[in-house]
Amino acid sequence: MTSAASTDTTLSDDWARRVNTLLLVVAGILIMTPTVWMVLSSFKPSFEVTAYPPKLFFTPTFENYAQLTKTTPFLSFALNSVIVTVGSAGIGLLFGIPAAFAVSWTRISWPALLALAARMAPGTLFLLPWYVMFRQVGLIGSYTALILSHAVITMPIAIWVLLPSFDNIPRSVYEAAQVDGCSLTRILLRIALPLVGSGIAVAAILCFVFSWNYFLFALVLSNGDTKTLIAAAFNFVGEGSTQWGALMAAATLIALPPLLLAAVVQRWLVAGLTLGAVKG
């Protein structure tokens, strides 16, 4: 009797697991399909991309990518994006790392809360005074204005991702160094930093991704020469109303760097994204 009962439960457990796997596959397909469609469309010949009914099978071509680099300054937009993203991520980390260490060391929480407040405010709220300020000093359209504005996105990310990492280091680790009379800067550089290596990697990648993806500031603060890819995407949409192939090629290329980077750190990404609210 008992053996039959246990077979029964394993049987239903088995079924429950199969149904669950099936649901997971369905969810995965629903999540993936739009992105796959975007990538497929970018490889379609221009006369087939707007075909109706839409075609699933076609001879792939790089025509759209070639057209994109020929008819738009795509590569210089990409270079602008790299400059602004690397610059702002660099400033965010350079300012954010010592700040996060100081906040963790003193256990004062208000600077971190201030950084959180910066995340809560709508971007336009900052853009209005910046626009007036940058115009007065002639910085509209400059890389400086773009990098500084994007650093307002990256620095709070760096602080919030690194705070839990620094908090997790037990105080006893620092004690020997303190007895030796090491300065705080030395303690940060020699002891704390090597211990939060993975945290810094996640912070750097999140800074990069969110700066790369940010739309609003570059929309107003860039000009024709300093336009980032994301801001240029707005023009692609206007011009690309009939050129779906080139539009989807642009979308694919713009999405590629953040998606690749996110895949590298996927395991640690979620804890970082929830600002330490959930330990995953």
Partner: peptide
């Protein structure tokens, strides 16, 4: 992770099509 790491602007372009 891929949908929310993608730039929202790209998500907009994609769904527009």
């Amino acid at each position: 992770i891929s949908p929310f790491m993608m730039p929202p602007v790209v998500a907009g372009m994609m769904w527009l099509v």
